[in-house]
Design a protein around this nucleic acid. Structure first.
Length: 502
RNA sequence: GCUGCUAUAGUGUAGAGGCCAAUCAUGUCGGCCUUUCACGCCGACGACAGGGGUUCGAAUCCCCUUAGCAGCACCA
């Protein structure tokens, strides 16, 4: 029964259901749990460290926060956390911004922590004045031992005045890296040793920070707490690796009498199949193992964008995953499915013949084939392929076959002379092909095609594609019977495309 | 080791004591449609980690076991 026949039959037997037939299934993303206290809008943040481009892990954090800002309204702060000169790549600032834009995040404000050092110094002084922090000159290892035993180090007994003087000396450059740190006074008997008198400020002499001339830098738990308060952040969604940090930051909120934001900590997301660590990626690029930050073996957003994955698909996949506290493994399959629903209605169809065999079709008339650019959208028209006597066929599709149909063209019979195929015209009838269970395969005229490389993570496929593909640069197309691919370049009479998924 | 979090089908997810012989998506398999092994449609497969308790009744609450994860940095 054809679509049309179904429709008319349904019209006869149950016309009230006709509307339902017309409904397209919209796999819209689900609703995430509500956030408490979000009724009057929210202020949230995405706070990456500029050490490299954004990857799938960042996508989760940024998209989930973005989801709630869109849902409740409010502000979305992009906070560049560049307080560790050792972990700042000057080029990453630009890459982060590009990636944020690609993701389509609704950022309303951008702040750089390196612009705010004086603010942190100021609040650090206030914390010392409150008796909430002290300057510690113990060796890190020595302090660690004391801490694990729940013992105070001698520095903890200093007066506020002494601490203020030492703090000023830090700012004046009278200490060197590693000699001194400002510690938040917490609770040395806290059952979790991770909570005990953690560091808030330290000195970094080298390397120089690319944006600011300074040697005293706040540590994350201090700058984050101060900023979250000063920027009016109401809700924070981040990974559970920050649970301990949330507790540590709580001490600062308490010292200053600030109301902390509402926190949600989602579970760890394992991502297989790609490289994610910034250091691993950087080394690989340096050694030539990867072509760059967008190498398709990497898990960066620019890499998956190059493979034809759309930001909207990433977004939907992340919202599907949600903010659960369970550890999960990221599913490429689910992402591909989300991408396919975006890309399939748009992608034009073309033939790609991998590993081609050139044959003469004996007795074949010269024919024009008209293959729809998109079977679901006839208005887009068709591409025209002129088949003279010589055609390119995919080797894997004809091997062992005695009859195949060249899609939208005609049938051919194949006689095997050893492993040499002798191909002859076998009529135009589609019915014949079906009766003989001849596979319908893609093909190309031998004199009208473009060499094409289809790059995949597991290795590239060499072949030829239709000349029209050259006009699809940066678009996602579907190579029929092979899958979706993004046309990366089409220079110098050859095409290179990146495989996305089937 | 210490501290804490989590545990539903291959994967992701819903489920906040009876509406659950457990939702949806994805996946796989079968069928329909189709000159693509795409899309769409129909159907099937497939899970409450294990053990105790509380309760008339537990996927939902409690305890134990097991497993996974996170933190225990002068990184973020």
């Amino acid at each position: 029964m054809s679509q049309q026949e179904r429709k008319s039959l349904l019209l006869e037997i149950a016309p009230e259901l006709l509307d339902e037939l017309a409904e397209t299934h919209e796999r819209s993303s689900r609703e995430l749990p509500a956030l408490p206290g979000a009724g009057n809008g929210v202020v949230m943040r995405f706070a990456p460290n500029p050490s490299g481009p954004l990857h799938l892990g960042h996508a989760r954090a940024s998209v989930l926060n973005d989801y709630y800002v869109r849902r409740y309204g409010g502000r979305y702060v992009l906070r560049i956390e560049d307080t560790d000169p050792r972990r700042v790549d000057p080029e990453a600032y630009g890459m982060v911004l590009e990636d944020v834009e690609w993701l389509g995040l609704g950022i309303t404000d951008i702040v750089y922590q390196s612009d705010r050092l004086d603010i942190y110094y100021d609040w650090c002084r206030k914390l010392i004045e409150l008796g909430g922090a002290y300057v510690c000159v113990c060796e890190a290892e020595r302090f660690r031992e004391l801490k694990l035993r729940g013992k105070a180090c001698p520095c903890r007994e200093r007066t506020v005045e002494e601490n203020l003087e030492l703090w000023q000396q830090m700012l004046d450059g009278e200490f060197y890296e590693g000699d001194v740190t400002v510690r938040v006074k917490t609770d040395l008997t806290h059952p979790d040793p991770a909570m005990r008198d953690y560091s808030a400020m330290r000195i970094v002499n080298a390397p120089l920070h690319p944006r600011v001339d300074a040697t005293v830098f706040p540590l994350m738990n201090f700058s984050v707490a101060v900023d979250d308060h000063l920027l009016g952040i109401t809700h924070v969604i981040r990974g559970k690796d920050h649970i301990a940090n949330t507790r540590r930051q709580r001490y600062i909120f308490d010292y200053f009498g600030w109301e902390p934001p509402v926190y949600r900590h989602y579970g760890r997301m394992g991502i297989s199949g790609v490289v994610l660590s910034t250091s691993g990626m950087r080394e690989g690029i340096k050694s030539g193992l990867y072509t760059g930050w967008d190498d398709i073996h990497l898990g960066t957003l620019r890499a998956i964008a190059r493979r034809g994955i759309k930001a909207e698909a990433v977004r939907n996949a992340m919202i599907d995953i949600g903010i659960g506290e369970t550890d999960i493994s990221f599913s490429w399959e689910n992402l591909y499915s989300r991408n396919k629903e975006i890309v399939d209605p748009k992608a034009n169809r073309y033939f790609f013949v991998p590993d081609p065999v050139e044959v003469v079709v004996e007795g074949a008339p010269c024919r024009e084939a008209h293959a729809a650019l998109h079977p679901g959208d006839p208005s887009r028209g068709a591409r025209t392929l002129v088949a003279g006597g010589r055609v390119l066929l995919p080797k894997a599709d004809i091997e062992g076959k005695s009859m195949v149909r060249l899609k939208d063209l005609y049938n051919v019979r194949i006689a095997w002379d050893g492993d040499l195929p002798r191909v002859s015209y076998a009529g135009d009838s589609l019915e014949d092909a079906r009766r003989d269970k001849a596979p319908i395969i893609q093909w190309l005229p031998a004199d009208a095609n473009l060499p094409c490389t289809l790059l995949r993570q597991e290795g590239s496929l060499e072949g030829f594609c239709e000349p029209l593909v050259a006009g699809e640069r940066d678009n996602v197309v579907q190579f029929e019977r092979i899958g979706f691919a993004r046309v990366d370049s089409a220079d110098g009479g050859r095409v290179s495309a990146y495989f996305a998924h089937r």
